[in-house]
Amino acid sequence: MNSTIETILNHRSIRKFKDQPLTDEQINLLVKAAQSASTSSNVQAYSIIGVKDPDKKQKLAELAGGQSYVAHTGHFFVFCADLFRHQKVGEMEGADLTESLESTEKFMVAIIDAALAAQNMSVAAESMGLGICYIGGLRNNLPAVSDVLKTPERVIPLFGLTVGHPDQNPDVKPRLPFEHLYFEDEYDTEDQRYKEQLQTYNETVSSYYHERTEGKRSDTWTGQMAKMLSHPQRMYMKEFVQGKGLDKQ
């Protein structure tokens, strides 16, 4: 096993950082690592907004649900689906790109491009001894987040990424069993085997929480998911996205 794979397998979310900002050199290197990710047909349909202003970081921390580590981290990156520049491409080249830019397919390309870039940055950051945490809570109130970041039409802030010097060392959280998510040739839907795998994972997760909290928690994964998914979240999203000129056809 090489050091890159060891870094990936040792991933954990960090929610407490030392009071030490990233250097401009570190920021530039992380962005370059993100840009080296694969991108569909070289479309490069994403942008990254680095937030240094303390007031903006505090506002984004509040909008993300009071996640204080958004404001108290080495640097805060926001990854955006971005087809604004491609609208400008159409203007420069005298081409009407509206149908493509408003398609679900190009919206998916933008989301996938942004996710790939972010994961490249995450692996790079962890290889440098830094810690990271993805912040999906920005989607709690994207209109307000967009106002803070001044994102134009065809640009959607998707998630944030805190990057900094770790001030904690949590255990690695167990993932689903290998055989439950890796199939060969076709998807396996055999009901009993499928549920047995989930039950095995429930036991692993419950033991993880029991040990981590000294017996105060013993959550199961299926219980967590059922509770969360019983309360639909961010149901304004389709209207907001389409209002930004994306995913309209």
Rank of each mutant, 00 (worst) to 15 (best):
31 V>W: 05
62 E>K: 13
216 K>M: 10
132 I>W: 01
163 V>M: 04
177 P>R: 09
140 N>P: 04
114 A>W: 03
41 S>A: 14
98 T>V: 11
34 A>P: 04
245 G>P: 02
11 H>M: 04
181 L>N: 07
119 Q>Y: 12
180 H>E: 09
7 T>G: 10
117 A>M: 07
113 D>F: 05
74 G>N: 05
55 D>L: 12
175 R>V: 06
241 V>L: 12
2 N>Y: 07
68 S>R: 12
211 E>Q: 14
161 L>F: 06
239 E>C: 00
59 K>H: 10
55 D>A: 15
208 Y>L: 04
162 T>S: 13
223 G>M: 09
217 R>V: 01
142 L>W: 02
179 E>M: 07
217 R>I: 04
95 A>V: 15
111 I>V: 15
179 E>C: 05
104 T>Q: 13
171 D>C: 02
23 T>D: 08
197 Q>F: 03
206 S>G: 07
228 M>G: 05
75 H>F: 10
246 L>F: 03
204 T>Q: 11
57 K>R: 15
66 G>W: 06
36 S>P: 06
156 I>D: 00
190 E>P: 00
43 V>Q: 09
137 G>H: 07
148 V>W: 05
190 E>M: 00
235 M>S: 10
116 L>H: 05
109 V>R: 02
138 L>Y: 04
224 Q>D: 12
162 T>G: 03
228 M>N: 10
195 K>C: 06
126 E>G: 02
201 Y>N: 06
157 P>V: 05
65 G>T: 03
148 V>L: 06
151 T>F: 05
215 G>F: 10
214 E>Y: 06
108 M>H: 10
178 F>Q: 12
5 I>L: 15
65 G>N: 06
102 E>H: 11
52 K>Q: 12
100 S>Q: 14
89 V>N: 09
128 M>H: 04
197 Q>I: 09
112 I>F: 01
39 T>F: 05
158 L>R: 01
119 Q>L: 07
156 I>C: 00
110 A>K: 00
110 A>R: 01
204 T>E: 10
89 V>T: 13
180 H>F: 06
